[in-house]
């Protein structure tokens, strides 16, 4: 019985992230369009785009190798595995003992690396430029994600994410401690950078010179492009879900029950809708920062993460 609920939770996480990711992107574009006074293309537009791209003719540019062809599948696969591991709906799943923080961050980094290699593989000027920028950002972001979750793992005494989330549900004071708040701020900036949102990267830019993520995928067409776009939508959903799991863990099922799972599903969707609307609204008010100032921003968020770890260590006492 409980195993069935656990497997249902894992399947539910993958399906919700997979089906919800294009909807979340559509929702964020719609919120943004409304704030700009537009009518907007509707929440379903990313699904229409994906459907159309899957039917288009696949194009493989001359001179590209295995890195270019494998990257879209690898990007989606790593994100789906990470979505199965991270406790988005339930902390009590058959895979929760493997849901280590370092594994999840490595999976995300593997997807980033695959895409950067694909960008280099095309041999175009913009592909290489985008890859180099992406790796610069990634080198600053991954340590921040690791450190800010380490700050939360010190009171829990483990780097297992479900254990951290369960601990936070039972002891909410951990989240309002200075360490919790600093880690929230650090991780929020890191998530923005990792998913290529304003102020680090502009997902809807047409200017090649300002691109980071987009510059790497300029050569993809048809079904490959559909996978790449789905992959980046999945990553946005996954990282926003991770953020909400770590810092607003209420509602996540901590025991194997169908009712708990249903509540978790509804609350997870509500959290993502809210988080997406806040992010989209914030993007209307922000401008993209200059590329040379991105490291300053990310170093700032890294500093917050270091402070979070330090305060978590010293304020939690000798325990």
């Amino acid at each position: 019985m409980s195993a069935a609920v656990g497997y249902a939770a894992v399947a539910g996480q993958v399906v919700v992230v997979g089906a919800g990711a294009p909807l979340l992107t559509g929702w964020m574009r719609q919120v943004r369009a409304r704030l700009e006074g537009r009518a907007g293309a509707g929440v379903l537009q990313p699904w229409r785009d994906t459907r159309k791209l899957l039917r288009k003719e696949p194009v493989t540019p001359v001179g590209t190798g295995p890195a270019f062809r494998a990257a879209p599948a690898l990007l989606v696969a790593t994100t789906v595995v990470a979505a199965a591991l991270v406790p988005l709906l339930s902390t009590d799943t058959p895979v929760s003992s493997h849901a280590d923080l370092i594994v999840v961050v490595s999976l995300i980094a593997l997807g980033t690396l695959a895409l950067a290699l694909a960008g280099l593989d095309t041999g175009t000027a913009f592909g290489g430029m985008g890859a180099s920028r992406e790796m610069t950002v990634a080198a600053l972001v991954e340590p921040t994600i690791l450190l800010s979750v380490f700050a939360l793992s010190i009171p829990a005494g483990t780097t297992n994410i479900p254990a951290i989330v369960t601990g936070a549900v039972h002891e909410p004071a951990r989240l309002t401690s200075p360490a919790g708040l600093l880690a929230t701020a650090a991780l929020a900036v890191a998530v923005l950078a990792e998913t290529g949102r304003i102020p680090v990267d502009n997902p809807s830019t047409h200017l090649e010179l300002t691109m980071i993520h987009e510059a790497m995928v300029l050569e993809y067409a048809g079904p490959d492009l559909a996978l790449v776009e789905l992959g980046s939508q999945l990553r946005l959903t996954l990282l926003l879900g991770l953020l909400s799991s770590l810092f607003v863990p209420w509602g996540i099922a901590t025991s194997a029950s169908w009712a708990g799972l249903a509540v978790a599903l509804v609350l997870f969707a509500a959290k993502l809708v809210l988080l997406g609307a806040v992010l989209a609204a914030a993007e209307v008010f922000w401008a993209k920062v200059r590329l040379f100032r991105v490291p300053e921003l990310l170093a700032g968020s890294f500093l917050l993460a270091v402070l979070a770890v330090a305060s978590s260590y010293f304020l939690s006492g000798a325990s």
Binding site: A33, R38, L218, Y220
Partner: peptide, 14 residues
Amino acid sequence: DAERYGARLVASPR
């Protein structure tokens, strides 16, 4: 607002 009809400008002919 041509975007509301599902048209979007992109950066690459691919």
